[in-house]
Design a protein around this nucleic acid. Structure first.
Lengths: 159, 159
DNA sequence: GCAGGATTGCTGACGCGTCAGCTAAAGTCT
DNA sequence: AGACTTTAGCTGACGCGTCAGCAATCCTGC
């Protein structure tokens, strides 16, 4: 890696840590929700009738099932989400549902959260910078997904 | 926020979460160190004689003192760091020092960690993309630091 | 039918990071 | 000197995220 690449890599970590912390703090101050809670509530709010299967929800927001299960436990403890009876044929499946409280919490959080993202992120960048950033991020995302899908390029049994 | 800004903001979060997870996993697999441990060891390795004051170290790596104290406790438990007697006049100050084990752990981790950053980050981007990304990140960092320094622009007592 | 695997969902352990709050030592002001 | 604030450092509580591992259910091939 060149000096410039290394510096940029370090900057990426520093900036994203800053933004995560500050936007998370705003969200907590504005709506008493963590970023993780907001993410789950957002997905459930999107879904028809505010219900979803855990596995489908986890896939949609890019979490593994364990992470989601822990978050659902905490959300249920807070009363923002509840387990619903699943009428599906699959006996393994469960169904989670937004409570009224969860729905209103999300609605109250959405506006301030977008405003916070604007304040810390969008306000800073010109249109051209956003375009360039979007390009780099898409490239990184493709590259990363590709690497993650084929993690060990050498010395595989290959059957 | 425009649709494009919002999408880019979401992408930024997704990409950085991916990179954090994967590079962290690599570091653990290669050297049995977490990113946080590596950061502290890196700073101490840089310092003359491998010693530093907690407050100075925290400032240098951008952490608050609590976060560093917790990390130092864990590092000490692992035997990578130890408290040293401080000869300073200031009775509040303490002094932390790398152990031999800590020094070798850092040295063994550095190469693989850089290679991991190259693999997940630098390999993906063209020189131009790195330049553009660096520009956006510097802008965001300036903007964020400025906001963080003057958090409430309205309705301050102003003495 | 049933054995072997895959999928779904959950849990406990553990490291991480934030926050509130504490002690002790310096510095400051009168 | 005595009171006030600031600084250095630490801790406990708590939410978060990863990993290893478990139980139940479903699917496949024999």
């Amino acid at each position: 890696m060149t000096e410039r690449q290394l510096r940029t890599w370090e900057n990426l970590q520093e900036v994203t840590e800053l933004l995560r912390r500050e936007v998370g703090r705003d969200l907590w101050n504005d709506a008493k929700l963590s970023e993780a809670e907001f993410t789950v509530l957002a997905h459930l709010s999107m879904a028809a009738k505010g219900t979803a299967r855990p596995s489908e929800c986890a896939r949609a927001i890019g979490w593994d099932s364990s992470r989601l299960a822990h978050q659902l436990r905490r959300l249920e403890k807070r009363g923002l989400v509840e387990k619903a009876a699943s009428e599906a044929a699959d006996g393994r499946a469960s169904l989670i549902a937004l409570t009224d409280e969860g729905r209103t919490a999300y609605r109250r959080a959405l506006g301030p959260h977008l405003r916070s993202a604007q304040k810390w992120f969008a306000d800073a960048l010109s249109d051209e910078q956003v375009d360039n950033l979007a390009d780099a991020l898409e490239t990184l995302l493709r590259h990363g997904s590709h690497l993650a899908a084929a993690p060990a390029p050498t010395a595989e049994p290959q059957v």
